[in-house]
Write a protein that binds this DNA or RNA. Structure first.
Lengths: 412, 412
DNA sequence: GCTATTTTTTCGAGCCTCGAAAAAAAGAAT
DNA sequence: ATTCTTTTTTTCGAGGCTCGAAAAAATAGC
């Protein structure tokens, strides 16, 4: 079960806490850190002296420090940008994006490429990805910097342990071992995560007052994805990335889904499903490969203009999402929901049916109104979440004495 | 976020670890504890000396210690039965059961009463419950013992924070504040939990080799309940007991459920639903108040004997559970399932449809066979889980120096 | 220039865990 | 019967860590 607590783990943990406090607060003084962590001033002083000596934190004087209060002025502490660098890799339909980010979170370099992910060979996909990452890392190496971690976010189901993309709608190939391949090519530790989980991570960093410990992010795009934060932790399946909200069963043996099964929520609420219903195609019609954002916007406009099959299609989508959320909320308690992606721009069209459906479920009845929020563009969120995920991982690696980038220990 | 780690928390935690190790292992020696916790022998020696001096642990020599090995023989440590007592309260349809259990887990006293929970007034239900608990506690007080905790398990949705039973099928009344009432009457801390969560806790204690960190217990009874263990923690909603598997939506706007909504899993797989379908009643027929176990067994026998409406009713039930599990497994990964309760005795009748349904879902396809296990009788499981839950809570209370029953600290 | 005020550092005390060595307790061997 | 082995448990000193109190540092106000 829970492992033992060694005596020296204590320092490690408290170092972690200090670093986390700085990352959260931005430019806190030692006194603020003492307040937010609950540790004593002396301890904070000792730990931050160590961290500064190791080059992990820096005293950032100039910045807006002048609170012009009496007494010794506070010295703001910040994350040392040079302490580390990380690389983020975001792979989605037709797009591969790589970025290098410094320890303070500033983007140093970015590269992006359009790929025909749907038709590429397995090797081409893996290879292109590895190549782009290697190119960036080489460049950083030439500049004398060391990348400590690679964080990858993919649209699809991942296995966080073996860091394999088990299945994805962006490619016909399955079981792509991005983790091993990137690690073999670079020698740098890699994580592979689902993009919607990264969206949830990003939302929490961006708006902690709204997205605190329990909330849900639903990506309404070609497919339907979900990222969930439960008790302050990103919720993943016990092994896979889990959270396949889009493939909960809405109507047993119902409409044909892109995944080959029938009746999934996605088969009623994904872009292709809306398109299919708006065009009065059969529910057995094989889902279309891709539908542009413009097309969805056009459908939404037509739905707003007149009552017709388009409006009905959005209604059906809302109903599917509503019943799905209802079932989800029967399991966990209702929580704030962020609707992300192009589909979220049509929230006005799906909201009535969604609320009506949710009101018919256990999750909707035990509680008051559920709060929805719209984020039309998912791409920056995914990048941001991926960045913060990788950085907090570095935060935790660095605690381990000996793993520090600067002189090991006796610097002070 | 995570709070600070004080210096003295360390001892507290390691004491907790030692106690937990003893509770798990039964009669371990100090050496075994050192092995299982990872702490050093000296630390174990110091902590166990403290715990023995405080009357929490005892050296239990006589018991089967003679391994007849060379060397100094091991001294087995056990939980001191006198260290504390707890009371468990199990409230289910027509039954109220109270038991007093000592610190080592032995039942000291038990009392049980049949109640007409469905027709009782709100006050009668609360009052009878409080009265029975008080009677037992008074008896223990007269014997000079102190009850340190009350653990209650109810069939229904609970709010673990306010310790209120929010809703229950066993009574028309809602928002019954068992926690506050029991605490006011006894002055002893109380927890109120959902019975299915307690089943999960019990299964983990009983068969840790099978029910380790991730598994699901489904209670097939008049209604459908669920208890889930995720990452070794009982999973509850963020506020309520959550896990209302029975009220996930199987068919939107479908059969009438006991909860008043439509299309819930329970409305197809609960005892009353099976009975309703077997009798070819309409799906709109208001669910029957109660169906005896004998009646269900008779239905199952008829279903086994000949193809008819009974067999179809069980098939429909299996299908509903299968699709429900499929949706659940889309969110979390598939895990071993324990089917508990009278309905589990008809597993042979529901299994084919269940597996067929699950195979049509995301949860069923990504993985191999899901393993099901049958536990026909839920009552002892609920009691056991409730007991272990309360005892481990005492385990954690006692760690806090000063809260120990014996002399505060300087005993050694 | 002095004082009040606030932040940060220093220092000694008190715990806690750990490793090594000693003590204890039994079976095995002579 | 006594000594040797082996294993468990305790003892003891060393090294770390956090904490509180007091000292030092740094600035605004007068």
């Amino acid at each position: 079960m829970s492992t033992a607590i060694r005596h020296d783990d204590l320092r490690k943990r408290n170092r972690a806490m200090v670093i986390a406090a700085v990352r959260r607060a931005g430019q806190p003084s030692r006194t603020e850190i003492a307040g937010s962590t609950g540790l004593s001033h002396s301890t904070i002083s000792a730990i931050s002296a160590d961290l500064i000596a190791e080059g992990i934190l820096v005293e950032t004087k100039g910045t807006e420090a002048v609170s012009s209060k009496r007494g010794r002025p506070q010295v703001a502490l910040g994350l040392a940008p040079d302490a580390a660098e990380i690389v983020t890799v975001v792979l989605s339909l037709h797009l591969l994006a790589v970025a290098v980010v410094d320890y303070s979170g500033q983007v140093i370099a970015a590269e992006e490429r359009r790929l025909d992910t749907l038709t590429m060979s397995r090797e081409a996909l893996l290879g292109d990805c590895v190549a782009m990452v290697c190119r960036q890392i080489e460049a950083r190496r030439a500049a004398g910097r060391r990348v400590l971690r690679i964080g990858m976010a993919v649209q699809g189901i991942t296995d966080s342990v073996s860091r394999i993309m088990l299945w994805s709608p962006i490619t016909p190939h399955a079981h792509l071992e991005f983790g091993d391949r990137l690690e073999a090519a670079t020698g740098i530790p890699v994580t592979v995560d689902n993009d919607c989980n990264m969206i949830a991570v990003a939302l929490r960093w961006r708006r902690p007052e709204r997205y605190r410990n329990d909330f849900i992010a639903i990506l309404l795009s070609h497919g339907i994805g979900m990222g969930m934060m439960l008790r302050g932790e990103p919720f993943t399946g016990t092994q896979s990335s889990g959270g396949e909200f889009g493939h909960m069963i809405h109507r047993p043996d119902g409409a044909l889904c892109r995944c080959g099964r029938r009746g999934c929520v996605e088969a009623y609420a994904g872009n292709y499903a809306i398109w299919r219903n708006a065009g009065r195609w059969s529910e057995d019609e094989a889902p279309l490969a891709d539908i542009s954002d413009e097309e969805i916007r056009a459908l939404a406009d037509r739905a707003r203009a007149a009552d017709g099959p388009e409006r009905e299609a959005f209604r059906v989508a809302g109903e599917a999402i509503g019943f799905g959320l209802g079932s989800l909320f029967a399991l966990i308690d209702p929580a704030p929901v962020a609707l992300v992606g192009i589909g979220a721009t049509a929230f006005d069209l799906i909201e009535p049916a969604l609320r009506e459906a949710i009101a018919k479920t256990a999750g909707g009845q035990h509680n008051g109104e559920i709060s929805f929020d719209i984020e039309p563009n998912e791409v920056p969120l995914i990048r941001e979440g991926c960045t913060m995920n990788a950085l907090t991982f570095v935060d935790r690696e660095i605690f381990a004495p000996g793993a520090a980038p600067a002189s090991t220990e006796g610097a002070a």
